[in-house]
């Protein structure tokens, strides 16, 4: 009897203990998430291999920290939408966006500004690439014979992987991608687009020219299997965007200092990692064409 009573007491005790411990654990979670330092945080859209991005942006963080005299952190994210959400929620104050993600982010954050872009971003372009078995060859005209193939975009929120190729497909073939192709996929990022077209899983794909160059340099492209079939006309792309309220937190003139420091990146290794020749000033109005296209194909209301 006593043994049973003890057992019951034990059960009861365990339950209440576990109960209080879980409540305790739950309530301490928010505490552990409070940031100790007031660091200036930035992110970048995950458009290619994450380890490559980490290497590049950790270097940028160190550079900014030295020049600005405040703690600077880079946080990697897994999607374009997560990068925009972090910027919008003030969890990052600066971001390396693509044309489309930048436009979206700046609509959501009043007073935010595009401050710098790569020299090449003023006239960026894409490639359409195809698997060798399709027999498609490079041309200067839009390759209308891609209709009926199995096609992959990059990420759904990408400028070069989605917006621009979809715009040209609609313009030249007068139909939505779903009606043009046998099948339409979203590979996730440009590195994967190249890999999936190279393996023949998709026959044709749209890829960012800079990532193509990077992969070519890294020896990851087998030219006998995948090749360029078309180069798009130029459009404005990547840029550094900053929130409007940074001056309130880091002092008047902070925004301008960030801009100046970014424009002054001269380290050849750092520039080569993007790869960009140099950075030049940018403004919100430079991206009006992107906004127009996004509205035209209804990616932005």
């Amino acid at each position: 009897m006593l043994k049973n009573a003890l057992k019951l007491f034990h059960t009861f005790g365990t339950i209440s203990l576990l109960f209080f411990l879980s409540v305790w654990a739950a309530s301490s979670v928010p505490l552990s998430t409070v940031k100790a330092s007031d660091a200036f945080v930035f992110t970048a859209i995950p458009d290619e291999d994450e380890s490559r991005l980490r290497q590049r942006f950790n270097k940028i963080a160190t550079y900014l920290e030295n020049k600005l005299g405040v703690a600077v952190t880079y946080i990697p994210v897994k999607s374009y939408a997560a990068a925009v959400a972090a910027f919008r929620n003030d969890q990052v104050q600066l971001a390396w966006f693509g044309g489309l993600s930048g436009v979206r982010a700046r609509i959501l954050v009043p007073n935010s500004e595009a401050i710098a872009q790569g020299l090449e971003d003023q006239a960026f372009f894409n490639y359409f690439i195809a698997h060798s078995s399709t027999g498609l060859k490079r041309s200067t005209e839009f390759p209308k014979n891609i209709a009926g193939t199995i096609f992959t975009f990059g990420s759904k929120g990408s400028t070069s992987g989605r917006l621009i190729p979809e715009f040209h497909i609609r313009k030249h073939l007068k139909k939505a991608p779903n009606d043009v192709f046998q099948k339409v996929g979203f590979s996730g990022n440009h590195t994967r687009t190249i890999q999936l077209v190279q393996s023949g899983a998709y026959q044709v794909g749209a890829v960012n020219s800079k990532v193509w160059e990077n992969e070519m340099k890294a020896g990851k492209i087998d030219s006998s299997k995948v090749s360029i079939i078309w180069k798009t006309p130029p459009y404005p792309n990547y840029q550094w965007s900053i929130r409007g309220d940074v001056d309130v937190r880091w002092g008047a003139g902070f925004k301008n200092r960030v801009k100046e420091v970014l424009l002054n990146i001269k380290d050849p290794d750092l520039l080569a990692s993007f790869p960009r020749t140099s950075f030049v000033p940018a403004s919100n109005s430079d991206y009006q064409p992107i906004l127009d296209v996004a509205k035209a194909i209804k990616l932005i209301d």
Partner: peptide, 26 residues
Amino acid sequence: RPRLIGFYLIVAPFLLGGGADIKLGN
């Protein structure tokens, strides 16, 4: 082990790592 769960629960919150600030406005 059932006996270790209590200990785990005490330690776990400190292992989650930091994150961004949570803002009521958001």
